[in-house]
């Protein structure tokens, strides 16, 4: 089938957003939440993750490549839309626009965040409680992190909503409505987890 590539890429983009990138995001937020129990608890959790077997394999194939594909294709999708919320002031149209906007903010945030932590680690820095505490010591950086976390969590939660539509799981308007409530509850819950964690470093 010659003309099927776009269908495949779209479905791959949708799948990767949840598995593995979305699952990694949830895991990452949960590990960070150990910071609310003090530096030792956080460092222990972070070291456990660092010492997982096949760490580099997991990082490359579970995080980096899927995220890279999702982000690049996501940018392409975001820039082929012609947003029209001023003319069509409807809830889902706003969510459509915010999904694209939050994707772009998330990309900027994640790139910066990876540079500051994982790339520095590759250059020999140690990723621990102290490193994060130093970063968010600067109120500007703390604000940037809070925005980045909320944007990422929104993008994931609202993305789950559209994932369920893209795969034909929620078909009826009623199921889509309930799905809105559930995914927005996930947004609130994960935001609390994420913000509590970052504030624990501040």
């Amino acid at each position: 089938m010659a003309g099927n590539r776009e269908f495949f890429y779209r479905r791959l983009h949708s799948l990767l957003g949840v598995i593995p990138v979305g699952l990694f995001l949830v895991q990452h937020l949960v590990v960070n939440h150990f910071a609310t129990r003090g530096p030792e608890a956080f460092n222990r959790a972070a070291h456990f993750m660092e010492n997982l077997p096949f760490r580099y394999f997991l990082e490359i194939f579970v995080i980096f490549l899927p995220l890279l594909f999702h982000a690049i294709y996501g940018l392409y999708i975001a820039f082929t839309a012609k947003n029209n919320v001023s003319r069509y002031n409807y809830f889902r149209n706003w969510m459509f626009m915010l999904q694209r906007l939050s994707g772009i903010i998330t990309l900027i945030f994640v790139t910066w965040h990876v540079w500051e932590t994982r790339v520095q680690a590759a250059f020999g820095a140690e990723v621990n409680y102290e490193m994060m505490a130093n970063i968010v010591d600067n109120p500007m950086m703390l604000g940037f992190y809070v925005l980045g976390i909320i944007s990422t969590v929104f993008h994931f939660s609202n993305g789950l909503w559209s994932f369920f539509v893209s795969w034909g799981i929620t078909v009826t308007p009623r199921s889509q409505q309930i799905s809105t409530y559930v995914t927005m509850a996930i947004f609130v819950a994960l935001s609390i987890v994420g913000i509590r964690a970052i504030l624990a470093f501040a």
């Binding site: 003309g3 590539r5 776009e6 269908f7 479905r11 889902r92 459509f96 539509v165 893209s166």
Partner: peptide, 11 residues
Amino acid sequence: GDGGLANCGNS
């Protein structure tokens, strides 16, 4: 095919 169903973004 290209330009088909998968291009819907659920606005």
